[in-house]
């Protein structure tokens, strides 16, 4: 993709679809979390309607205070704070997943909307495309 294409961006044919990224994996044990984040950043160039949902172990992706110095992998948690600049502002976190892990909204690195399992299910129903990680 060239800079020019990135700049023009926009939806092909002007069609804006609703994309939901469903994040269910903890950040470092597998590559899913990082892959999801990269796809979100890349697709942000196409000016679609993007929402992110964090449920199950996915809520661990956005826990504050991650420090990967000793494990020698990149700490990509600060990148979630860049999403706002990419106009990705709809971040949803499942309440039940937080509770099962003893976490609260205050433990998270970005502002989110905490919603119930039922609301997550509704979110899935209301999107055109779901990308599952």
């Amino acid at each position: 993709m060239t800079d020019e294409m990135m700049e023009e961006g926009g939806a092909p044919g002007g069609v804006v679809k609703k994309f939901l990224y469903v994040n269910r994996k903890a950040p470092y044990g597998t590559i899913y979390a990082l892959e999801s984040l990269e796809v979100v950043l890349i697709s942000a160039a196409f000016e679609q309607d993007v929402s992110l949902a964090f449920l199950d172990d996915g809520v661990y992706q956005i826990v504050k205070g991650q420090d990967t110095k000793s494990v020698g992998v990149k700490n990509f948690s600060p990148t979630y704070r860049a999403l706002e600049g990419y106009d990705v502002e709809k971040l949803y976190v499942e309440k039940e997943s937080l509770e099962a892990r003893g976490l609260t909204e205050e433990d998270l690195i970005v502002p989110v909307q905490v919603i119930s399992t039922e609301e997550i299910a509704d979110l899935m129903e209301s999107h055109d495309v779901i990308l599952s990680f």
Partner: peptide, 13 residues
């Protein structure tokens, strides 16, 4: 394993 604890930001829990 402490490095894995720290990487995940859960050292206080």
């Amino acid at each position: 394993l402490q490095p894995d604890i720290e990487a995940r930001g859960v050292q206080n829990r």
